[in-house]
């Protein structure tokens, strides 16, 4: 690991934009934050706001071709992206990428993109709306293995932390000057102060406990699910949702391409079989599934963390008012017995 002090971030941006396809979060005229590709001569100041769509689509594309069939044989259609940099990914989204890296370990399409990417993380020094990353160990500071480079704002300067050999290679030509380790202590302090600024969200920790206690009733989920219309908003914006469907798209002369596209486990048809048998026919079952996937301990065991990274995007986008904050509050208030799991097993 090497640390550098940088006066002008634009210097770094322009440098990276020359060697890589350069993507950064920008804002449009309505105050909407989103990822956009920028040329080296059109870099923009780094914004600290959470983009509405996470970075997952860079690796797990919203729609992509898996293969083509030419009438005689099947052929893989792997993407061949040029090297690209995601500049200023926040810790919640980086944690999600780290999670997906494990989940899609053997997925050639995901990896084809992922391996071309240089991740430049950005420490958050202020809480964002609906965000609760510290509670689920996903922020506000970028975790060690989650990015190649970490940027930390120091007033008018930037701390640049080089974490991987990929980063070293990318930064080499810039000839940055290494700086003192005490800046890392200052970083820790700033991040700690940021954590203190998050609102009290004990209901989330309590909710996770309760969710894993097996005491939440089916009736609770069914009542909650009246509000779910399977719009797919939460699963689309959730940085760790990864379910997909496939479809064949006919071409001329017996040929076709097979495409995969983002799917949502909240759809009634998600598990419905051709025979109309449906293991998750009840909306309550599906809503429960979604939250289990985000917070159940079994997934924790497999991925060493919960899949929820605390970005709060589901709260913002759910038209049925059952995003993470609303649900966790209701779980702690109504979901079965009043007290947590300790009591129920007594």
């Amino acid at each position: 690991m090497k640390i550098y002090l940088l006066d002008d971030l634009q210097h770094l941006q322009a440098h990276l934009a020359q060697d890589y396809q350069f993507h950064q979060v920008v804002t449009n005229n309505n105050g909407q934050y989103h990822w956009q590709q920028l040329a080296s001569d059109e870099t923009q100041p780094l914004v600290h706001d959470k983009p509405q769509s996470s970075a997952k689509g860079f690796f797990f594309a919203e729609q992509e071709s898996l293969l083509v069939f030419n009438g005689e044989y099947f052929q893989e259609t792997l993407p061949t992206p040029k090297p690209f940099v995601l500049f200023g990914v926040q810790s919640c989204d980086l944690t999600a990428i780290h999670y997906q890296d494990k989940f899609f370990k053997d997925d050639r399409y995901y990896q084809a993109r992922r391996q071309q990417c240089l991740l430049v993380g950005l420490d958050c020094i202020n809480p964002c709306e609906h965000g609760f990353c510290p509670t689920v160990n996903a922020g506000p500071g970028v975790r060690e293995e989650h990015a190649d480079i970490v940027l930390h704002p120091l007033g008018h300067k930037w701390l640049v932390i080089e974490q991987t050999s990929k980063a070293a290679e990318a930064l080499q030509a810039l000839a940055l000057i290494e700086t003192h380790w005490h800046y890392l202590t200052q970083r820790d302090l700033t991040l700690h102060q940021c954590e203190q600024k998050f609102p009290d969200d004990k209901y989330i920790t309590d909710g996770i406990k309760k969710l894993n206690s097996g005491t939440i009733t089916d009736e609770f989920w069914q009542t909650l699910a009246i509000q779910c219309r399977g719009c797919s908003g939460c699963t689309t914006l959730c940085p760790t949702c990864s379910c997909y469907g496939t479809r064949a798209i006919k071409q001329d002369n017996n040929a076709f391409s097979q495409q995969r596209f983002w799917d949502s486990c909240l759809y009634e048809g998600f598990q419905r079989e051709a025979s109309f048998n449906n293991p998750s026919a009840e909306a309550g079952t599906r809503v429960e599934r979604f939250w289990q996937h985000k917070f159940a301990d079994e997934f924790f065991t497999e991925f060493s963390r919960h899949s929820c990274v605390g970005c709060g995007r589901c709260e913002q986008t759910c038209p049925g008012v059952i995003g993470v904050h609303s649900v966790m509050k209701r779980i702690t208030k109504e979901g079965g017995q009043e007290n947590g799991p300790e009591v129920t097993h007594a």
Binding site: Y244, T246, D263, C265, Q271, R289, H293, A296, F299
Partner: peptide, 15 residues
């Protein structure tokens, strides 16, 4: 099932 590779998510039972 769509993928049979443990990725697409359709055939879940719990985790």
């Amino acid at each position: 099932m769509h993928c049979a590779l443990g990725l697409c998510g359709h055939c879940y039972i719990k985790h």
